[in-house]
Write a protein that binds this DNA or RNA. Structure first.
Lengths: 340, 340
DNA sequence: CACAACTTTTGAATCGTTTCATTGGTACGA
DNA sequence: TCGTACCAATGAAACGATTCAAAAGTTGTG
């Protein structure tokens, strides 16, 4: 056999009309048991597989949703993708995944590709500022939901996590367990997330008159960057050491932890409490299990799909911005020191 | 405007025939400068985007390649995916990514979906034994390349990494740096990769008459599993400790390292050398930078696409199995101890 | 100016579905 | 027997691109 079987071949094989085969596929109730059975057998015998391009051409839209993320390797996005796929599957759609890798031209390629595919809609975590491109999508009538980025509600729906609240949560937790000399370790504050988390931490510290917050810059968001911050702290005298450290992400925190525990000068959490952000898999299996702030990634993915469905269904869409609050995960690295 | 513009609308707008518009899109050389310009302007003014479903229906196949991996969160696959996407983009194809999550029914869903999409071919890292399903694909004429799994060359092409060679490489390295009492830490040997790596290690050890290899079971492939193996080793006397440990993956190795360094009973690499497998990002930023075996993931992804292209191009395909050899990455955890 | 050779443009046919107005059957009551 | 419902099955039209044989236009030569 050369060509794959078409619905017409099936119709002939089962001695029915093409419309009947289509009904078996799409509206089984409209077809009598006898013919349904005959058609199904023919489908089986010929190995017929529906040609989705033809279907899509006829009905005018696909059953796929485009999802463009900044980095599939990032556990945050991986988790969002999973959730989005599952949520989409429930409503009979499939997700086409694109990885822009923080690269505007790759992103543009995916946007074009997905438009040609006539996706039902687009979920995107955009690279930098692509307001123009997104406006174009809007004009073309491609429903779009921004992920992990707040949107002008007049234009788009969006889902995001409140980083300010996360920062507050982390600092508040350190304060609640009795720490007063806090330090914030973060990458460049030009990154919105870092700036927001710092702002939230400041807000918490200002609630306690006797508390102070010191800001320590790190060169990047990596374990190694965290370790050099830690080395710097170790060199300070014990008196000048903060008693609570909040890192803008878990990698930094793990680096700081390595540095402090390796030298055995200070103990975590007795001398210094340490909390990170993101709750990556490694947090729980660190030398001292790391407290962290968990972002509701599954919820993010699921909600993104829901918002998109809303946009697809309604003709004159009302846009919504949903902001989730992250969650505190307490582990040993911030355990309350010997009560007092 | 309601409906998106079709090629017909463009033709009318530019006062040419539909065939001419199609030529502008696909064979620009066949069209005179003047009309080309006119058509392009019309495309721009109407915001025309080619409907890929119609195109695909006519030409009979899509420009997409299906890729189904076991776990997008696994850095190994993430890297393969990246490379495959890039390689596909170079030849004008796009990759549809599916994550089976080690789940046979999700895998089946993706296979069905991709068949309906009439992908050019399929790259798959299959869950368990799905020989039947794959045979079906073969009958249907869907070119398929197995990834990270050896295939019966009569049936499929495949790309894989030689785990036996990797195991040999790791053990040989420990031997070459003077270690003689080796230990292998692995999850269940029912996992093919683990069994192969162990086999390779055995092969190396047998080359040295005075060397011995001890096999230590771990409950899983995680940091925590590694740590409990490490704890067990610490409890042994120094005399009974191996002087070289090879872990079947980096997570296990990191766990062992945590356990050994935390107690400060033994030093790495002076008392014990430690090597992992996979060379994950964390290996380089471990407390003691971890030696490891790196798999050529980019090469794997690129080659998979190439093999698929071969299958697509030739009508009576000759299948090929390509096996890559992994690479030794030496870091501090296996540094040669004070010469002697 | 006629003719050949070549380039450019045309538009009907085609791909494989879904849709829907129409036809054919069957059952029931009058 | 006829009329009325109702259910199943039919098959032509439509979706929007590409293809390709044919028509139209252009240029060059004698």
């Amino acid at each position: 056999m050369n060509r794959t079987a078409s619905i017409k071949d099936v119709a002939i094989h089962a001695s029915v009309a093409v419309g009947t085969v289509s009904n078996v596929l799409n509206y089984p109730d409209r077809v009598s048991e006898r013919t349904k059975e005959r058609v199904l057998r023919a489908i089986d015998e010929l190995g017929f597989v529906r040609n989705d391009a033809a279907r899509q051409l006829r009905v005018g839209h696909s059953r796929t949703i485009g999802l463009i993320v900044l980095d599939v390797g990032n556990p945050f996005f991986t988790s969002v993708v999973r959730a989005a796929e599952d949520a989409a599957a429930l409503q009979g759609s499939a997700v086409l995944l694109g990885d822009s890798g923080h690269n505007a031209s790759r992103e543009a390629n995916y946007i074009d590709l997905f438009q040609e595919q006539r996706v039902q809609g687009l979920l995107i975590s955009p690279v930098g500022d692509i307001a123009d491109r997104l406006d174009l999508l809007r004009e073309r009538g491609v429903p779009t939901v921004l992920v992990d980025r707040l949107a002008d509600e007049a234009k788009f729906s969006s889902v995001a996590v409140d980083d300010d609240a996360g920062g507050y949560l982390a600092a508040r937790h350190l304060l609640d367990t009795g720490r007063r000399r806090l330090a914030f370790v973060g990458g460049p504050t030009s990154i919105r997330q870092v700036a927001d988390r710092l702002q939230g931490a400041r807000r918490a510290v200002e609630e306690e008159p006797d508390a102070a917050l010191e800001v320590l810059d790190a060169e990047g968001q990596t374990v190694l960057a965290g370790r050099s911050v830690g080395d710097m702290l170790v060199k300070r005298g014990r008196a000048e050491l903060p008693d609570g450290i909040f890192c803008a992400n878990d990698l930094l925190a793990l680096g700081v932890m390595q540095s402090l525990t390796m030298t055995h000068t200070f103990r975590i959490p007795e001398d210094v409490a340490l909390i990170g952000y993101d709750d990556i898999d490694f947090a729980v299996s660190a030398v001292v299990p790391l407290s962290s702030i968990r972002q509701p990634t599954e919820l993010l993915g699921r909600t993104a799909i829901e918002l998109l469905s809303e946009e697809v269904e309604s003709q004159n869409p009302v846009h919504r911005s949903v902001v989730f609050t992250p969650e505190l995960v307490v582990r040993q690295s911030t355990a309350t020191p010997a009560a007092g």
